[in-house]
Simulated assay, not measured.
Amino acid sequence: MAERLVKVYSRFNRIWHWLQVLSILMLLLTGTRIMGLHPVLPFEAAVTLHTLTALFLLVLWAFATFWLFTTENWMQFIPRYEGLPAVIRFYAWGAFKGEPHPYLKAYHSRHNPLQALSYLALKVVLFPAIWISGLAYLGYTFWAPADHASFWLTIVANIHILAAFSVATFVVLHVYLLTIGHGFREHVRPMITGFEKVEVSAEAEAYFAAEKPERLKEEAQS
């Protein structure tokens, strides 16, 4: 196995990622305005922007889910215990002592065990919770005549807010972890250029060189 700069993030992957980032930031901005936590936008405009952005992001996630399951990328989110304690120890202790990251990225396994577990929880727990509660809240007029509708509306609203603040916490931690190790720019650059330094086998490198040379890139010399 050798470390090479390989194009591991497709154009769709990168566009999806940054559109998701912008959408989530807009949802947090408008959602906190609806809650009355700041006066940046008029209330009606915040509600409209929140709804439209949420529907856009729902469509984007539908396309992204289809893309994940029709490519090999879904395998990146399979959680595994092997190496998890070492990664947790690194972020809790080793990173502050200057220790090297215990996980070496490979072409078919770019996410470390903690990342894979976190992203899986995000996709199968938090995102469904926020979408189901949001759509239920948006469609309240359809089930308002039901018994105890106001009580259930309170439950739906609280689930939505709890899920939203959980996503906000994930965003803060995600940005913070980008500052650990090689530095913020080094972590963000792959999601801009598509190229990341990962371990590839000799067979995979030979295949890329022969069949997909555009996916290999020589590392710039300093």
Rank of each mutant, 00 (worst) to 15 (best):
A144P: 04
N73W: 05
L173A: 14
L19Q: 14
T169S: 10
T65D: 15
E44A: 12
P79S: 01
P145L: 00
L22E: 10
Y81N: 11
E3K: 14
Q115D: 10
Y176A: 13
A206V: 09
N112V: 01
F165G: 06
A129C: 07
V167P: 03
L162W: 08
T193E: 03
L37K: 12
L135K: 03
P145Y: 01
L162M: 12
A168V: 10
F127E: 07
I192S: 04
L117F: 04
A209K: 04
W152Y: 11
A146C: 12
T48A: 12
F69D: 06
M191S: 05
W16A: 15
G181M: 05
G36H: 04
P79Q: 02
E44W: 08
A92Q: 11
E44N: 12
L120C: 05
E203C: 01
I192N: 01
A116T: 09
V175P: 10
A202F: 00
E214Q: 10
V124L: 07
A206D: 14
W61C: 13
N13C: 14
A136P: 05
G31R: 06
S109W: 08
P213Q: 06
S201E: 05
R110G: 10
V47D: 13
H148W: 03
F56S: 09
A163T: 05
G31T: 07
I161G: 06
V125C: 13
W16D: 15
T71S: 15
S133H: 03
M35Y: 14
H148V: 02
I159G: 03
S166N: 06
S10Q: 11
V175Y: 03
A116P: 08
T193S: 13
N13E: 15
F96W: 08
H38P: 08
H111C: 03
V188K: 08
F96R: 13
E219N: 11
V87C: 01
F69K: 14
T169Q: 02
R215I: 00
F43N: 07
Q76S: 13
Y91M: 06
T141C: 09
G134W: 01
Q221V: 15
I130C: 09
Q115R: 02
L153G: 07
T53R: 01
G94T: 07
R14G: 09
I24Q: 06
Q20N: 15
P79Y: 00
V59F: 11
V40E: 00
W143E: 05
W18G: 12
L52P: 02
K197V: 06
A210K: 06
T30I: 09
F56R: 02
G94S: 01
Y103L: 07
G139A: 07
P42L: 01
L60R: 03
H17M: 01
R189S: 09
R11G: 15
